[in-house]
Structure formats: C-alpha cells, structure tokens
Design a protein around this nucleic acid. Structure first.
Lengths: 113, 113
DNA sequence: TAAGTATATAACAATATACTTATATGCACA
DNA sequence: TGTGCATATAAGTATATTGTTATATACTTA
C-alpha cells in the first residue's frame, strides 16, 4: 500500500519545484523514459547549464537519480523517493509529453545519446 | 465528466502558486469551509497584508472567489474555475487541515467573523 | 597522452517573490 | 456624520529564482 499522503511543508516544497514548466515537463518525460542532459537541451531549446541546474534541483530533493553510462549521465525518476507516490499522482493529471521525444527520434538526436 | 487534464504551462503556473505552504494550506482549508481574511491571519499568525496578498494571487488566477457579507469578505474555492478539477485532485493528496479551524472555534475566534 | 564530448559548477545579473509599514476603501453603527 | 473594524493596495526592502558566461571535471577515442 502506497503512502500518497505528504506533509504540507514537504508538499509545498515539491510543488514549488514543479511550478516551473521546464522542470514539470522534465519530470513528466522521465516518468516514461530515462533521459540525458543533451536530450533535454534539445527538447527545451535551452542552454546546457540551465538544464543542468534544473535537473540538480530535482536531484537535490531526491525526485530523480542519475546513472553514468560512459560519457553520458542518464537521469530517471527515483521510485524510492518518499515523495514518489505523490509525484506519480500529480504526473497522472498532466498530458503525455511523448511527442517531444518522438521529434528527437525523428531527427536522430535521441539515438545520439 | 470532469476534465482534469490541463496544459503544461497552466499546470506549472498553478503549481508555482501552490508551492507556498501558506497558500497551499489556505486552499486546502477553503476546500471545506469558506473563510475570511481575519481567520487566516489567526491561523497562520501572519500580518493582514501578507494574507491579503496571498489570497489575491489565488483570486487573480481564478482559484478562489470572494463574497462580501457585511463587514467581512468571505473567500471560497471557485468551483467554476477551469482548473478546479485539477486542484481538487491535488488537494485530495494532502492531509486534512481541519484542526486549524477547530482551534479557532475553541478560542471563539472563528465565530467572531 | 591530447583532443573532443557531456556534464557540473561558479560567479554574476536580471527579475520575481514575499515580507514589511503606511495608507486607502468600504461597511456598520452610535 | 464620525469612529471603528475588515480588508485592499502601494511602496519599499530583503531574499530567492533563473538565466547567462566562463570554467572545471570526467569519460572516450585517436
């Protein structure tokens, strides 16, 4: 039985973090697929440091975890987070963001990583 | 059939707004009871302008509505908001905040308004 | 080992946020 | 009509956030 309940202060912290379209979309994408920074850079048409800093915030609070694969670092949702059940419910209220990854695949940019 | 789905940019705007413990708790309380500013001032032990400003943000985005009753202005959740279904799902993931109002009732402060 | 790629981090600047204090508005009631 | 109470708003300030540029780190491969 998953514990979806969460204290108010923790909830507010998490909502503040997700109250940014880039981070929110990142997390929604990570809900389906692992991704590396360069993919997010493509998807959001943002600078690499900007993406890194957004990911760092998600990582600092424990929502995502990283795994180095050679030259790349892949990020994924941390299902062990105490907040994961809460996050999952939240993400389920949001529209799929698959098409963003599909675009990359069509351009061949996803395979690159 | 309620439409709980929401665009990402709108969702991010709302989550940012709720990413503040005071506003999040306010909304959770309003989910059960109408409240006036002076009650929130008591509950959060905050200044009146501070509370007014938080409420204003919730009102500006259409999540709460106001209704003057004599000297007081009562706030309630705006169930006509296009975001209401989303908000409702979100609030359901949070713990009840009833005890905060109960405290006021015990002190007699709630009846005052 | 040198060069290239992916990523992180530091330092800084612009902007946003969340308080504070002071003041205005609107209603009630004597 | 004047006073008091509830609330809103304006202005100012401290702090947080988010991006930028520059640089560091870590791995890969020639």
């Amino acid at each position: 039985m998953l514990k979806t309940m969460i204290e108010m202060d923790k909830a507010a912290d998490i909502l503040k973090l997700l109250g940014n379209e880039t981070r929110l979309t990142m997390l929604k994408i990570l809900d389906d697929h692992d991704c590396c920074v360069c993919e997010f850079v493509e998807i959001f048409q943002a600078s690499q440091p900007s993406i890194s800093q957004h990911i760092r915030k998600l990582r600092d609070i424990g929502l995502v975890k990283e795994e180095r694969r050679g030259q790349w670092i892949f990020y994924s949702i941390n299902k062990d987070s105490e907040f994961y059940p809460f996050i999952l419910q939240l993400l389920n209220l949001l529209p799929q963001q698959n098409e963003k990854l599909k675009e990359l695949e069509e351009k061949g940019t996803r395979i690159k990583c």
